[in-house]
């Protein structure tokens, strides 16, 4: 089936099987391997991307469902070599250890801050409960998201 999806601002026209998952489309067909596959069962959040600006788990969406839509992955956040405020805050606050969950956490945080520009600490923790960090680096992740909220315009 033919689909056209705008990924990180660039229109891609591609032939996909209906059963092709969005995460596999991004990784295997477009070569955007920043989005990780973790649990593969919509629990861990490692594969979180934005579809039309909202966070979704790309392992639980077929690529055909995003035909005509806009997808943003971790590769699409930095603009002209400048890190996105959430990425910069993750670096500044050392909000990662092994880094595997980081792309998913960053995308979920971008969506969270879009919906709640000034979240409380509880709202950050609740808002990110769909993402797991097996290094248990939650403390610094929450601190980074709070800092990003303060610095974002």
């Amino acid at each position: 089936m033919k689909i056209s999806v705008t990924v990180n601002g660039r229109l891609h026209e591609a032939e996909v099987e209906p059963r092709q998952l969005l995460v596999n489309f991004l990784r295997d067909q477009l070569g955007l391997c920043g989005t990780n596959i973790g649990c593969d069962t919509s629990s861990c959040g490692a594969c979180t991307v934005l579809v039309d600006g909202e966070s979704v788990k790309s392992c639980t969406l077929f690529a055909v469902q995003t035909d005509g839509m806009e997808v943003t992955t971790i590769e699409g956040l930095a603009q002209e070599g400048e890190l996105h405020p959430v990425q910069a805050a993750f670096r500044e606050h050392h909000a990662l250890q092994c880094g595997f969950c980081t792309p998913g956490f960053v995308m979920a945080a971008v969506s969270l801050l879009h919906e709640h520009p000034n979240p409380t600490e509880d709202e950050i923790r609740e808002g990110l409960n769909g993402n797991l960090c097996r290094c248990t680096g939650y403390h610094n992740i929450v601190a980074a998201v709070a800092a990003a909220a303060r610095t974002s315009p």
């Binding site: 909202e54 969506s111 919906e115 993402n131």
Partner: peptide, 9 residues
């Protein structure tokens, strides 16, 4: 229900 990502869909 689950988490915000799931609730978006």
């Amino acid at each position: 229900i689950a988490d915000r990502q799931v609730r978006h869909r």
